[in-house]
Amino acid sequence: MLAGSVAHAELVGDAEAGRKLAGQCRTCHGADGYAQIPVAPHIGGEPVAYLAAQLTAFREGTRQHEMMSVVAKSLTDMQIADLAAWYGGVTAISDLPDGISADAAPSACITCHGADGLSLMQDAPNLAGENVIYIETQLKAFRTGKRRHAAMTDIAKSLTEAEMRAAAEWYAATQLTLTR
């Protein structure tokens, strides 16, 4: 499943073409990828490869969602690359809440998602500033198999409900700023 998406990521997207296409995304994700509705995640400043892989997964049906499956159904590989270039071209900055130390971050997550929720690898997403319920929903989707990923499925299965909520609250409390 990831092999296909890596191939798409190699298509070099045109951010300007992506900006035009993003008109159909902004009601939910904002023009720069800052989410406008609670069910949608922030996508500005995510790794380009991650964005392309998820859009492809929605189109192929390997990741399903009532809204995103409708949105992605008709996107071509080139359009996906363009959109990934547009949203991936945003710079994401994350701040921990006042008086909170990075030492308190959930240790099981930081190697890939960072203490501040900014991803440290190309195929992992940022979690900074996502709301608690979005993060929890995705963890449960990995746990139940609705969403699959070699690393995340096992990680999600190893967490208790309370640990999920605590990790979600940690990342939700970080302050995401997007700039272009």
Binding site: V39, H65, T137
Partner: peptide, 8 residues
Amino acid sequence: VEEESFNH
């Protein structure tokens, strides 16, 4: 619990 979702 298996039927939980965020949307709708």
